[in-house]
Design a protein around this nucleic acid. Structure first.
Length: 503
RNA sequence: GGCCCCAUCGUCUAGUCAGGCCUAGGACACCAGGUUUUCAUCCUGGCAACGGGGGUUCGAAUCCCCCUGGGGUCACCA
């Protein structure tokens, strides 16, 4: 039986070659990104090849722009491919529309061997057939009207110019067993598989047709893809069998679910990787999070690098059930990464958002030799700011909003801050501080905490009575970075003038 | 509805293949304390799960069956 031989082919020691096969009809979906990630991880962990193949047989919806953005997204995630667009490879071309010669050879063979036949039914006719079949609630497949049309007659009608598609003649009474690394054996009966369209009207082959042929031609060893493809697999396996080519190993990964528990879709939030790039999630963090969705290294490791994933990756550790996209956890992971980045690295990461918010210039003020923290917008000043804000950041893009008050000349007080400075005691404290700051030799005063303590003692008030109004006047709000950081970043002139502004 | 997949805390999961080490571990979220004279971070503690029913077994989260529940798919899209 073909099944046994197919499994033997799967378990031999051929080189590991996996592929991610997006169709360039939109941006890279979160689920696709994770599928790509798993493919990449398997290739890297086993020393195999990661191949990118563009499934562009839907010429109606393809776009150059989509392709470009998909490639960019993959690169951003750090998933480098060994063969594919913009890379070399001995199994190219890597665009299906450029592989027509291969498909044509298979088509010719299928027609002459009889496992492909011409079907003259319109899409509407077939639609009615399917609807009726489904309404009858019976099991088994629907039968098309042209399956048994004599070849001579079919050829004559085709020659007369009648339009047709090519359907795959699915054999009856056969068991199709799919060997899946995640699910074990999955059984289908060929009687349940309809005679699917292999070649469209006009001659363009379909996904199922190209996919199986390419996987064989490119010597793909493992097909790792989303679970929604599981029911397509018997079609592809049956085709490979008709062609007499090797059937790859399969691994159907569980779906990523939206908050409604259904396949993640635009309904339930952002579904494109690009959305998360734009929002300021660090690439390493998103990579980590995606890997965690349906995969685990062990019982307690949650934060890990690409290298660690590669080191521990194993298809057997991919879970079977769908996973809800947990935005809270993503957020937390991002915070983890941001907090653990070096200040220099984080500064680089945050620069684009500061630029687009118009807070820093391009190039930066001064050059790298500027170490004077009074030079606002310099690299040194920015790094100081980033260090002060680091543990308060959830996303890269939050910085402009949270740190805007450090860039401006003055500041507007929010409600609570306004209240904190609007009493006699606060006014007295602040005017004392303004004077003290002005006469200080160094700014901020050396040994800051001792200095503040002394001021509080002189004023005969508690520390809270000093810190709170000062913070309010300086930052316009009651939260935020440490006062010493604010003073440092603001500098003497701005600090004093902000205090004077509320007196 | 047919076919296929799945089923451990609210969420992501470990444990299931080789049944006892599981009075089920970790993480997120949440709650309560503590550190930080703000916020955030950090630390400590707490809450919280094997969907149900039958088997098999000395013993089942782990094996088998049924039920229930959820999901996927049923295009000349991929």
């Amino acid at each position: 039986m073909w099944v046994a031989s197919a499994w033997q082919k799967m378990t031999d020691t051929r080189p590991v070659r996996v592929r991610f096969a997006p169709s360039p009809t939109g941006r890279l979906h979160i689920g696709g990104a994770r599928t790509a990630l798993f493919n990449w991880a398997l290739a890297r962990s086993l020393g195999g090849a990661f191949i990118l193949r563009v499934e562009d047989t839907d010429t109606e919806r393809n776009s150059e722009e989509s392709l470009h953005s998909i490639l960019e997204s993959l690169r951003w995630l750090g998933l480098d491919w060994d063969e594919g667009p913009e890379a070399n490879g001995e199994f190219g071309p890597y665009f299906q529309t450029q592989r027509m010669a291969n498909y044509q050879a298979a088509i010719d063979r299928g027609l002459s061997e009889g496992w492909l036949y011409r079907c003259f039914a319109s899409a509407e006719e077939i639609g009615e057939l399917v609807a009726e079949h489904r309404a009858n609630k019976r099991s088994g497949r629907w039968e098309g009207p042209y399956r048994d049309l004599p070849v001579a007659e079919a050829e004559a009608r085709a020659a007369a110019g009648e339009e047709f598609v090519l359907r795959f003649r699915v054999p009856m009474g056969q068991d199709v067993v799919i060997k899946d690394h995640i699910r074990g054996d999955v059984n289908f009966r060929s009687d349940e598989v309809e005679d699917w369209v292999a070649v469209r009207t006009g001659g363009m082959p379909t996904y199922n047709f190209c996919c199986a042929i390419d996987d064989a031609d490119m010597q793909i060893s493992h097909v790792i893809r989303g679970e929604e493809h599981l029911v397509n697999t018997p079609k592809q396996v049956l085709l490979a069998e008709a062609l007499g080519v090797a059937v790859p190993d399969f691994a159907h990964v569980p779906l990523i679910l939206g908050e409604d528990g259904k396949k993640l879709s635009k309904r339930t939030g952002d579904t494109a990787l690009g959305d998360y790039i734009d929002k300021g999630y660090p690439a390493d963090a998103l990579f980590n999070f995606l890997a965690l969705l349906g995969f685990s290294i062990d019982d307690k490791t949650t934060v890990f690098s690409r290298e660690e994933l590669v080191q521990h990756f194993d298809l057997k550790r991919i879970s079977k059930g769908g996973a809800l996209f947990d935005i809270d956890k993503l957020h937390w992971i991002c915070g983890e990464y941001i907090r653990h980045m070096s200040v220099a690295h984080l500064t680089d990461a945050v620069l684009p958002s500061l630029r687009s918010a118009g807070l820093v210039s391009e190039p930066l003020v001064g050059d790298d030799s500027v170490t004077d923290l009074n030079v606002i917008g310099s690299r040194a000043w920015l790094e100081r700011l980033v260090a002060a804000m680091q543990e308060r950041l959830g996303l890269l893009n939050e910085l402009p909003e949270k740190a805007a008050f450090l860039f401006s000349e003055g500041v507007e007080l929010d409600k609570k801050a306004a209240k904190a400075v609007a009493n006699e005691q606060a006014i007295a404290v602040l005017s004392h501080l303004a004077t003290a700051f002005e006469s200080a030799d160094v700014f901020p005063p050396a040994d800051w905490s001792a200095w503040v303590n002394e001021q509080a003692a002189q004023l005969d008030v508690g520390m809270g009575k000093v810190m709170k109004p000062l913070r309010a006047a300086l930052s316009g709000t009651l939260g935020g970075p440490e006062l010493l950081d604010i003073l440092t970043l603001l500098g003497k002139q701005r600090s004093v003038s902000r205090i004077r502004a509320v007196l």
